[in-house]
Amino acid sequence: MATKMIRDVIRDTIDTEMARDDSLIMLGEDIVGGNGAAGGPEAIGGIWGTSGGLWAKYGPDRVIDTPISESAIIGAAAGAALTGKRAIAEIMFADFIGVCMDQIWNQVAKFRYMFGGKSRCPITIRMPYGAGFNAAPQHSQVIHQFVTAMPGLKVVMPTTPADTKGLLAQSIRDDDPVIFLEHKALYGVKGEVPDEDYVIPFGNARQVTQGDDITILATGMMVGLAEKAAADLAQDGIGCDLLDLRTTSPLDEEAILDSVEQTGRLLIVDEAPPRCSLATDLSALVAQKAFASLKAPIQMVTPPHSPVPFARELESAYLPSPDKIVAAATRLMSYRKG
């Protein structure tokens, strides 16, 4: 067991997988850094610190620094994957998915279906995402809501170092295309990581806290906020069953429904704006399949229907917080029918 930060777990897991599988390649902007510059290659090793040393170890044919060309990064990774390689593509900020959406949505996600089940496209698209840095409207967004809506893609959102290892290994080894979302605020999170090789199968939520009163569903940075809120609520004798979904596609419906059937109350914390989101999707699931168990209307804690603003005061008002979660939990507990 070693204690590691998530960013180092990502680097080390890619390293292990590259050593394991010669066919694995990786593409992205500045993932090597310093190419064509006086400082020389590996002067940086990735702006997120998630690819240091890999170029030196595996060489430029496998660790490929690209020009600023997101469409070609995804297309090239996909084309390589379709023809026998396994590929990791890094999009520096998830917001830049806008530039390469066709390659992801119309190409990668649909190959297997359109080709009558005859193809494989084992590609892991890694995308740092999320707010909390005052990085303004074009560098702060979440995208899980719309990639989750796309048939053909699997969507992974790790929150702990140990989960990151098992989920990233599974993503890379998976024969389907995977969107692997790394919350920027979690890169520095430290935790124990088992040394042995393991994968975490998709569609298995992780129970973060156990409780009988409220089911809380969360992903990414929202899990930590919900955990803080759950600790506060526990002081008042309110028990929260907090589930970290880990993957939004596939979704662990069973764990969600089992929990709601026990607690009768559902609170969803989502970093996406409230329309056509993961939160609305989960609400619909529970309303359809566990309606009879509900003791109160479902509560969603989300940002408002707006872009992510820049200023400190605006961004913190925009984002969910432990206080907002506690307030929603209080509404749930005090609800009386009729």
Binding site: E29, D30, N35, G36, I44, I47, D65, P67
Partner: peptide
């Protein structure tokens, strides 16, 4: 200015 972030123009402009 010869750089895109940390990558040199000599590498990235074909």
């Amino acid at each position: 200015n010869h750089y895109s972030e940390h990558t040199g123009e000599a590498y990235a402009v074909g």
